[in-house]
Design a binder for these strands. Structure first.
Length: 485
RNA sequence: GGCCCGGUGGUCAAGCGGCUAAGACACCGCCCUUUCACGGCGGUAACACGGGUUCGAUUCCCGUCCGGGUCACCA
């Protein structure tokens, strides 16, 4: 028997992809793919007031860059379309009316003002709707309808008893029905609310596994009541632990914009690779059976299982993301890294023609985020003003006294070089150290400082000289010598 | 505040009645080394608390405390 597993990612087009959403999408993808199922993309745009131009494209782009390829969706179609809720608008009202017929829902003519007043006049923080229209006489309802009075449709919650549902992660959860509000199903503008559209769409799209953040845990009983009212099969619920952010005061709360770079686009702009981001967030709330940490998307599909999902919230840790990113960078080929780094090379060097592969090879092992690159190599384009004190280094045994002669000897040796390439420069300087009877570092230090003007550089003296080229190298070394005298 | 969920080192986390309580990140030290890194080796650091159940609880139950989520014509 092959009940096809179907999951859906149902973002609303807000203009950015929050990592919490991305992680939900990832898990939905993994649940589907690890079970040989289908991954559906559905756009939830029922809130006409919050519509953002171009936001859907951001969703497509993010999904593609993250590698989360959907099997059905607005852009590629499928058997259960349309996949945009605004295009399904007409589907929802009939379902709501069916509920009214069954006595599970009702028209409500209360104005927004009355609702606001209700809220304000109550001293209970959680006080909700007073069910004023719940038992309106049928004639009055009809009269209002005929008069064209604006209305919403509300779900009629049971006043007694309790509702229990099973969650694949959190287990059995029971809520007293008296806690449940008569939530709105259809808004005054005719659009369904998220909660209602969700149930209708998930059912009509044959979604078998509903994966979402645990912030929906407490509203799930309402969903179940809806499914039961229609006599529909209840999907498997998989609620995910929340991703938290650290606040300035040391507390934590649901990760949001105020915690910094928290959207996929933000993170990419901050110099993180999509693969590293995916790998990291996969491990926020899920752990494999073994100790493994490095996963490609495909490997995640192979290792994923629902019972590895944890219940407790996870704090988003930029340090760990940094580590993943540097690991991914180190694992790239130099060519791939050079390509990824190119925009940052340009930023620091402009049109200056330096060997990109050589640059990449000295940077690759020491780059955590791509965005660090420009500041690391800016000295190649223009040597910064530096102080002679940089020539002093205890470990290398260099001082203001011995540096001038050391540097002069270096210049002499280098000027005699026939070929200016890495190995020649290397052998030349090492040979010099031997000749002078000093440590390699002692001979190298003044050269590197004069060539770069920086105490810390990517690569050593040899690499820098090689990349800089003979002419510019010598020019800088002489300048250093001048500074020392 | 009501309701729901959670609670293993600073962070992510293994563990699912008996372990010297893994591993990773971060941090610290040492080594390597032409700087910084990288790499190698080692180290500091945890079962929130109190009751039970049991021969035995980090693991099961209850309570307390703490943390989070949720109570919209937002999703």
């Amino acid at each position: 028997m092959s009940t096809n597993v179907r999951t859906r990612f149902a973002p609303s087009p807000t203009g950015f992809m929050h990592v919490g959403n991305l992680r939900t999408a990832l898990y939905e993808y993994l649940v589907a793919k690890s079970l040989g199922g289908t991954f559906v993309l559905r756009i939830e745009d029922t809130d006409q007031e919050r519509k953002v131009e171009g936001a859907v494209d951001i969703i497509y782009n993010t999904m593609r860059r993250a590698g989360l390829i959907h099997d059905e969706g607005p852009d590629i179609g499928g058997d259960y379309g349309p996949y945009v809720q605004s295009e399904r608008k007409d589907m929802y009202l009939p379902y709501a009316k069916k509920l009214i017929e069954k006595g599970q829902a009702y028209y409500c003519f209360c104005t927004k003002e009355r609702l606001d007043m209700l809220r304000e006049s109550s001293d209970e923080p959680g006080a909700g709707y007073d069910r004023h229209c719940r038992d309106l006489p049928a004639e009055e309802v009809q009269r209002n309808l005929d008069a064209g009075m604006p209305y919403v449709i509300r779900q009629k919650m049971p006043l007694e008893g309790s509702t229990t549902f099973e969650d694949a992660v959190y287990g059995s959860i029971t809520v007293e029905n008296s806690e449940l509000q008569d939530q709105i199903l259809i808004k005054a503008d005719g659009f369904p609310t998220y909660n209602f559209a969700n149930v209708i769409d998930d059912h009509t799209m044959n979604i078998t596994h509903v994966v979402r953040g645990s912030e929906y845990l407490s509203s799930t009983p309402k969903y179940n009541l809806l499914y039961e009212a229609f006599g529909w099969k209840i999907p498997t619920y998989i609620h995910l632990p929340l991703i938290m952010g650290k606040n300035d005061d040391g507390t934590v709360s649901k990760l949001s914009k105020r915690h910094g770079a928290t959207s996929f686009e933000d993170l990419v702009a901050a110099g993180y690779l999509p693969e590293a981001i995916i790998n990291y967030i996969a491990l926020l709330g899920w752990a494999p059976k073994d100790n493994r940490e490095m996963f490609t998307l495909q490997e995640l599909v192979e290792s994923f299982s629902i019972d590895g999902i944890s219940k407790s919230p996870a704090v988003f840790d930029y340090d760990k993301l940094d580590w993943f990113n540097s690991e991914y960078i180190k694992a790239m080929t130099v060519e791939a890294f050079a390509a990824a780094a190119e925009p940052y090379f340009r930023k620091a060097l402009g049109d200056m023609q330096l060997d990109r592969i050589k640059l990449a090879s000295i940077l690759q092992q020491r780059t955590v985020r791509l965005t660090e690159i420009p500041e690391k190599i800016a000295f190649f384009a223009e040597q910064p003003e530096y102080d002679a004190s940089l020539f002093v280094n205890k470990k290398s045994k260099t001082t203001l006294e011995n540096s001038p002669s050391l540097l002069k000897e270096g210049i002499n040796a280098l000027e005699a070089l026939e070929k200016w390439d890495h190995d020649s420069i290397h052998d030349c300087l090492i040979g010099l150290a031997v000749e002078l009877g000093v440590k390699n570092g002692t001979a190298m230090w003044p050269v590197r400082i004069a060539a770069s003007g920086m105490s810390v550089t990517p690569g050593g003296a040899v690499e820098i000289l090689d990349i800089l080229g003979r002419e510019e190298s010598l020019r800088r070394l002489y300048k250093g010598l001048e500074k020392l005298s």
